[in-house]
Design a protein around this nucleic acid. Structure first.
Lengths: 203, 203
DNA sequence: TTGCTCCTCACGTCACGTGAGGTGGC
DNA sequence: TTGCTCCTCACGTCACGTGAGGTGGC
């Protein structure tokens, strides 16, 4: 038999597992894992059991990585790809809510980190105990506290502020002013709310 | 013997593991785990081996959660708390770089999700295959691609656009315009760079 | 006496990482 | 013939979750 065939195109070619790993940035082990759990089984094998991925396999892998990039677990990805067609809007809405929370949390963390960094002297002693105390106070402010913890924290904070020099206090205030300018109105309102709950009344 | 002692203050009291868990939002198992790995061993035990945490233990736990909240692993937390005093600025700088990357990645993801959500019809058929294709295209744009993959993707994208109705295309364009307004200059430049690499020359 | 809390194993989870020891293809 | 790639176990990682089976304190 002497078949006349077109030269194989790019989408016809079979991929070795190492080639696919290199092309996608995954590891060979990850592809083995997808095979093990049935998420991506190569459509072909050589005589000695080497995996050969088809163009369809490659496209499925792209879909898998896209959905993983959207924050789904591998089990969820499998359900989306192989399960009954589900309303994509539900999925996207859930992922959107998750990513909004991640963004908000990351901003609070960045704010704390920047504040902390500016409050530290540029050089000299590491001042590790002060670092720990600052971290402690700033992070506690983000969490829900029991009444006892509120009282302890307020006292802790008072002692901390007393221990700082006038220069350090002035620097922290300036830092806070500069950073406050970068906050959104919603973030400012949230900060004021937290501060009102934390500090004693003045008037 | 008849010692006269002050009434125990809040910081003197011993905490049971369940109380500490409830107060901090951690699980009992998590506290057991910290005990197991030597990160937080309660200073006291009752006769039958029940854990009793002192005020100092509670403060250490706050430090632990603060550092974990900063993105450190438990091993790193232990090293910071028990190791030689290290320069806090290095630590904070590293965490800051990490959180900046997380924020940028989360924004890209959110942008894709919102774009995708608006491009979908408000009701009617789930249109799952189109969802998968859209996700695929949009996510691939974020990644480094091999030349072959570039070619495949451009072709894929061309077929996809051809399959859309004029109304859908107009809606996507409008969506893109609204969302583009919210981007920073740096994000816009990045988008233009990616698009230039992806699309064929027109002139 | 009845719950509630506490205890110690000890295996499970998730998405792979990391060798161990061996075979196949260019 | 020499590397390079491939294969299959199989245990390790990380921060706990989840029972299993039992004891102690109010």
């Amino acid at each position: 038999m002497h078949l006349t065939r077109d030269k194989p195109t790019e989408s016809d070619r079979l991929w070795r597992v190492g080639e696919l790993a290199a092309a996608t940035g995954l590891t060979v082990r990850a592809l083995h894992h997808y095979d093990e759990i049935g998420l991506l089984k190569p459509s072909a094998h050589t005589g000695v059991g080497h995996r050969r991925y088809t163009g369809a396999d490659v496209r499925r892998l792209h879909q898998i990585r896209a959905l993983v990039g959207f924050g789904l677990s591998l089990a969820e990805v499998g359900a989306v790809l192989d399960g009954p067609p589900t309303d994509p809007r539900d999925l996207i809405q859930r992922q959107l809510a998750q990513v909004e929370q991640r963004i908000a949390a990351a901003y609070r963390l960045r704010h704390n980190l920047v504040d902390l960094l500016r409050a530290l002297p540029d050089e000299g002693e590491p001042a590790a105990p002060t670092l720990i105390e600052l971290i402690e106070v700033m992070t506690e402010m983000e969490q829900a506290l029991t009444p006892q913890q509120f009282a302890e924290l307020a006292e802790h904070r008072r002692r901390l502020v007393e221990s700082l020099s006038q220069e350090e206090l002035a620097e922290m205030a300036e830092t806070r002013r500069r950073l406050t300018e970068q906050l959104t109105p919603a973030e400012l309102a949230e900060m004021r709310r937290r501060r009102a709950a934390l500090l004693p009344r003045r008037e």
